[in-house]
Design a protein around this nucleic acid. Structure first.
Lengths: 168, 168
DNA sequence: CTTGAAAACAACCATCA
DNA sequence: TGATGGTTGTTTTCAAG
C-alpha cells in the first residue's frame, strides 16, 4: 500500500498543484482516500510544503554561483549559517566535509552584485570565500528517486521538526 | 504595479498551493485580477511550475553530496549531462567555470549507494569524480530575492522554452 | 476506503470605472 | 488594468456507511 504513497509523492513533486481529483485518478483511489493520504504525508513531514518554481532569469537573477566558505579564524564559534541567513541572494547553505566548511548556492543579477555579495559574506561571517561561477544549468531540482523505502512509517509523531534542514 | 507581481511571486514561492482567493486578499486585488496576473506570469515563464517540497530523510535519501566531474578524455565530445540524466539520484547538474566541468548534486540512501552511483557516473560519462559529502543543510531552496526588476516584461511570447535550464 | 451531498472555489464571462 | 457581479462546473470538505 506504500506503493500508492510513492505514486502520490512522485505526482506532487512533478506538479504540486494537482487537484485531489486528478491525483485520485492517477493512483486509482477515491478522492477522499487520496486526500487523507496526502494529509498524512504532510503531517509526517514527508511533504514539507509546496512552492512555485520560478525562472531566475525572468526575475533578473541570471548569475548563479557556488561559494565555498571557510572561517578566517577557526577558533571562533562557527555560526556562519545564521550570520548569513538574512542575505536573500543565498539560495542554499550546505555544511560540507572536506577543506571548506560550507557551500553556498547564490543567485545574483550581475558580476558586480556577486562582488558585493562576496564582500558582505566575508564581513558578515568572517570567512574567506572561493567562488565557482555556474555557466549553465542542464537540469536542477529534479524529482527524487522514491525507492521502496522500508520506513515510510511514523517514527515519533511528536511535535514535528523544529526548523530547517532537509538533508544530512 | 510590478510591485504586485513581486508580491504574487513571493507568496507563491512560499506556498505554491495558495488559492486565488487567498492570493487576492494578500496582494489587495480582486480574484480575477490576480488570476489574470498569475496566468501571465505562467505564460511568460516567470512561473515555470509548481512542486511539492519533500523531506529526503523521510524518503530514505539521507545522504546528500556534491560530485564535481571532469572528462577523462577532454578531446571527446562533452555530453555528460545527457549521459547522466537517467540517474534519478542526480538532483541537479550545473555546468561550471573553474577546474571542473560539471557539479552534480546527488541524493542517496547510504555510503554504499553513493559508491555505486559514483561508479555509474564515471562509466556512463567517462569522467573522473571528486565528491564532497554534505553533513547537514542549514537551509535550502529559499525564496529568491525578487528585486524591482527593470524587465518583468514580455520578451518573445513565442512557444516557450524547450527544455530544462533555469540559471545561466 | 467508499459514497454522496453541501460548501467553497476556479474559470469564465460580460460590463463599467 | 482593475472592480463587480453573475454563471457554471469542479474541487474540497465533511458525514456516514
Amino acid at each position: 500500500m506504500e506503493e500508492i504513497d510513492r505514486a502520490i509523492i512522485a505526482a506532487l513533486t512533478a506538479d504540486g498543484r494537482l487537484s485531489y481529483t486528478d491525483l485520485a485518478e492517477r493512483v486509482g483511489l477515491s478522492v477522499s482516500a487520496v486526500h487523507q493520504r496526502v494529509r498524512r504525508l504532510e503531517q509526517r513531514g514527508v511533504i514539507k510544503g509546496y512552492a512555485a518554481r520560478v525562472s531566475f532569469e525572468a526575475l533578473d537573477l541570471p548569475l548563479t554561483a557556488f561559494v565555498a566558505i571557510r572561517p578566517f579564524d577557526p577558533s571562533q564559534p562557527d555560526d556562519a549559517p545564521e550570520r548569513l541567513a538574512h542575505l536573500p541572494e543565498i539560495d542554499s547553505c550546505y555544511s560540507v566535509a572536506g577543506e571548506d566548511f560550507y557551500l553556498l548556492l547564490v543567485r545574483v543579477a550581475s558580476p558586480a552584485d556577486l562582488e558585493r555579495l562576496l564582500q558582505e559574506i566575508r564581513t558578515a561571517a568572517n570567512v574567506t570565500t572561493r567562488t565557482t561561477v555556474v555557466l549553465s544549468t542542464p537540469y536542477e531540482n529534479r524529482s527524487p528517486k522514491i525507492s521502496a523505502e522500508p520506513q515510510l512509517r511514523v517514527r515519533s509523531r511528536g511535535s514535528g521538526e523544529p526548523a530547517g534542514s532537509s538533508a544530512g
